Deep mutational scan, measured.
Amino acid sequence: MGFKLLSKLLVYLTASIMAIASPLAFSVDSSGEYPTVSEIPVGEVRLYQIADGVWSHIATQSFDGAVYPSNGLIVRDGDELLLIDTAWGAKNTAALLAEIEKQIGLPVTRAVSTHFHDDRVGGVDVLRAAGVATYASPSTRRLAEVEGNEIPTHSLEGLSSSGDAVRFGPVELFYPGAAHSTDNLIVYVPSASVLYGGCAIYELSRTSAGNVADADLAEWPTSIERIQQHYPEAQFVIPGHGLPGGLDLLKHTTNVVKAHTNRSVVE
Rank of each mutant, 00 (worst) to 15 (best):
G2H: 15
F3W: 05
K4V: 10
L5Y: 08
L6C: 09
S7F: 15
S7L: 05
S7H: 11
S7E: 13
S7P: 09
S7T: 07
K8S: 13
K8Y: 07
L9M: 06
L10E: 09
Y12W: 14
Y12T: 14
L13P: 07
T14K: 12
T14F: 10
A15W: 15
A15E: 05
S16V: 09
I17S: 05
M18S: 06
M18N: 12
I20P: 11
I20M: 11
A21I: 08
A21K: 13
S22M: 08
P23Y: 09
L24C: 12
A25H: 15
F26R: 09
S27D: 11
S30N: 11
S30A: 10
S31L: 10
G32C: 14
E33T: 11
E33F: 15
E33N: 07
Y34D: 14
P35M: 08
V37I: 07
S38M: 15
S38F: 15
S38G: 09
S38E: 07
E39R: 10
G43D: 13
G43P: 06
G43M: 08
E44Y: 15
V45D: 03
V45L: 14
R46M: 15
R46D: 15
L47K: 01
Y48Q: 07
I50Y: 07
I50K: 03
I50A: 13
A51I: 14
D52K: 08
G53L: 11
V54L: 06
V54F: 03
W55C: 01
W55N: 02
S56F: 15
S56L: 12
S56T: 13
H57N: 03
A59W: 02
T60S: 10
T60D: 05
Q61P: 02
S62T: 10
F63V: 11
F63E: 07
F63A: 11
F63W: 07
F63G: 11
D64R: 10
G65S: 07
A66Q: 13
A66S: 08
V67D: 08
V67K: 15
Y68E: 08
Y68M: 12
S70Y: 04
N71P: 01
G72F: 03
V75Q: 03
V75I: 14
R76W: 09
D77S: 13
D77G: 12
G78Q: 08
D79A: 15
D79K: 14
L81E: 01
L82M: 11
L83H: 00
L83D: 02
I84P: 02
A87H: 00
W88M: 01
G89M: 00
A90K: 08
A90Y: 07
K91D: 15
K91G: 13
K91F: 13
N92L: 05
T93N: 02
A94K: 09
A94L: 12
L96G: 02
L97S: 03
L97H: 02
A98Y: 15
A98P: 10
E99Y: 05
E99S: 15
I100D: 02
I100C: 02
K102Y: 08
K102V: 11
Q103E: 13
L106C: 06
P107V: 12
V108I: 05
T109C: 05
T109M: 12
R110C: 04
A111K: 03
A111H: 07
V112R: 03
H115Q: 01
H115S: 00
F116P: 02
H117C: 00
D118W: 07
D118S: 07
D119R: 01
R120W: 02
R120L: 01
R120S: 10
V121N: 01
G123S: 02
D125C: 03
D125V: 08
A130R: 14
A130Q: 15
A130S: 08
G131M: 13
V132Q: 02
A133R: 12
A133I: 12
Y135T: 01
Y135H: 14
A136V: 03
S137N: 15
S137F: 07
T140H: 03
T140L: 03
R141G: 05
R141N: 15
R141A: 14
R141K: 14
L143N: 11
A144I: 14
E145S: 08
E145P: 04
V146D: 11
V146L: 11
V146A: 12
G148C: 05
N149Q: 14
E150K: 05
P152I: 13
P152L: 04
P152M: 03
P152D: 01
T153Y: 06
L156W: 02
L156A: 04
E157Y: 09
G158C: 04
G158K: 11
L159R: 01
L159Y: 04
L159C: 02
L159F: 06
S161D: 14
S161N: 05
S162R: 13
S162D: 12
G163N: 07
G163F: 07
D164W: 10
D164L: 08
D164F: 09
D164H: 11
A165E: 12
V166C: 05
V166R: 08
V166H: 05
R167V: 05
R167W: 05
R167S: 06
G169D: 04
V171C: 03
V171I: 13
E172S: 10
L173N: 02
F174Y: 15
Y175E: 00
Y175C: 03
Y175I: 01
P176N: 00
P176M: 04
P176C: 01
A178E: 10
H180D: 00
H180W: 00
H180Y: 04
T182M: 06
D183M: 00
D183T: 00
N184S: 03
N184H: 00
N184R: 02
N184F: 01
I186K: 00
I186D: 00
I186R: 01
V187P: 02
Y188Q: 01
Y188P: 01
V189F: 07
P190D: 06
S191T: 09
S191C: 02
V194C: 00
V194K: 01
V194A: 07
Y196S: 01
Y196M: 06
G198R: 02
G198Y: 01
C199P: 01
C199Q: 00
C199Y: 03
A200L: 06
A200H: 04
I201G: 01
I201Q: 01
Y202G: 04
Y202E: 09
S205W: 06
R206P: 04
R206D: 10
S208R: 11
S208K: 10
A209T: 11
A209D: 07
A209I: 06
G210I: 04
V212M: 11
V212H: 06
A213Q: 08
D214T: 14
A215I: 05
L217N: 14
L217A: 14
L217C: 05
A218T: 12
A218G: 11
E219G: 11
W220Q: 01
P221G: 12
T222P: 08
T222Q: 13
E225V: 11
E225A: 12
R226Q: 05
I227E: 02
I227A: 12
I227M: 15
Q229P: 03
Q229D: 05
H230L: 09
P232N: 05
A234C: 05
Q235L: 05
F236E: 11
F236M: 10
F236L: 10
P239I: 02
H241P: 01
H241R: 02
H241T: 00
G242R: 03
L243M: 05
L243K: 09
P244S: 06
G245V: 02
G245E: 03
G245S: 05
L247F: 05
L247K: 05
L247G: 07
D248P: 06
L249P: 01
L250I: 08
H252Q: 06
H252A: 07
H252K: 05
T254A: 11
N255M: 06
K258V: 10
K258F: 05
H260I: 14
H260Y: 07
T261S: 13
T261H: 15
V265A: 11
V265K: 09
V265I: 06
V266E: 14
